[in-house]
């Protein structure tokens, strides 16, 4: 309907301005031209965007599988030949330093430990806090919300100086729990924000019904609210895990002096400048760093997308 009307309007306008134009010109009204051009342009743009976003990842995987000498001989070849294909890079990067590797397996264990610790502590804080903000009225409610928004917008570089000094001074700078605590303080505001939004969509009437039946607040939370909020809590957990796994600045500030405590991010960044370690081996390291995040993300993309706009940038 709309299309027909548009064509009619266009052609009559054209007929008014250019009465001598050939009748075939109708098919080439501005609308038609634009629609066709944009229709083609759209696919060009999508293809270009995909190439632009995915190429670095492809290049990462490609280099991690190629032999270094053949890479240096043919740096521009974008596909590996069967003869040069190797997984020795992964063996090198994962093996412990004692056996000549780079010890990334250990880095992964540290990263995993820190990230899981951060998730557990953040959730404990955030579930209670977001429930309070969504359901309960108490003095300072609004001020606390504003505080959390400000914390969420506050970049970590501004906390680098005081936290570095403080933890150095109390002698806990190399301790993993200290790092976890810092991560929790960075993620808890976003986590509360996301969970609060979710709690607000769960109708309070279910909880009220339970209250009428005589259940107290904590029974209600444990038996009704938490099970209902499980999808949101789960996506929150993944989100916090990703932030903690990817974090670089505080890992650098806190853990750099002791190689046995490096996270994968820190390890890769520290070894990247080294001349002795082949680029292909480090590329295998960056694949190892990236794969858990990409897998988690693709598995939960729908759950997470809402949260990303709420600020994955933190950290």
């Amino acid at each position: 309907m709309a299309g027909i009307a548009t064509v009619a309007a266009e052609s009559s306008a054209e007929a008014g301005t250019r009465p001598s134009g050939p009748p075939a010109g109708r098919r080439w009204s501005r609308t038609t031209v634009e629609t066709r051009v944009l229709g083609v342009l759209r696919w060009v743009v999508i293809a270009g965007l995909l190439l632009f976003t995915l190429f670095p990842f492809y290049y990462m995987v490609l280099l991690s599988l190629r032999d270094l000498s053949s890479l240096l001989q043919a740096p521009a070849r974008l596909w590996p030949t069967l003869s040069e294909l190797t997984v020795a890079t992964y063996r090198d990067v994962l093996a412990p330093t004692e056996s000549g590797g780079q010890g990334f397996l250990r880095f992964m264990a540290i990263s995993g430990l820190v990230a899981l610790g951060t998730v557990a502590v953040t959730l404990a804080f955030a579930v209670l806090g977001s429930y309070a903000l969504a359901r309960l009225r108490f003095p300072g409610h609004r001020r606390i919300s504003v505080l959390f928004l400000a914390v969420y917008l506050f970049p970590s570089i501004l906390l680098a100086v005081p936290l570095f000094i403080f933890f150095t001074r109390v002698g806990l700078r190399g301790a993993l729990p200290a790092l976890v605590l810092v991560y929790v303080s960075q993620t808890v505001a976003v986590a509360i924000y996301m969970l609060r939004n979710y709690f607000q969509t769960v109708p309070a009437s279910i909880e009220e019904a339970a209250a009428v039946d005589g259940a107290d607040r904590f029974t209600i939370m444990r038996k009704i609210t938490l099970p209902l909020a499980m999808p949101a809590i789960l996506s929150n957990a993944l989100f916090v895990f990703m932030i903690a796994w990817n974090e670089f600045l505080f890992a650098l500030l806190f853990l750099v002096e002791d190689r046995s405590r490096w996270t994968v991010s820190l390890g890769l960044s520290q070894l990247a400048g080294s001349i002795e370690i082949p680029t292909t081996v480090l590329m295998a390291g960056s694949v190892i760093l990236t794969v858990p995040i990409v897998v988690l993300f693709l598995a939960t993309e729908r759950l997470l997308t809402g949260g990303l706009t709420a600020g994955a940038e933190k950290g």
Partner: peptide, 16 residues
């Protein structure tokens, strides 16, 4: 796919 650069670890992205 378009969201990947945003979620990928910054150290890996800058390295590649």
């Amino acid at each position: 796919s378009l969201l990947l650069p945003y979620v990928a670890p910054v150290v890996a992205a800058t390295f590649v």
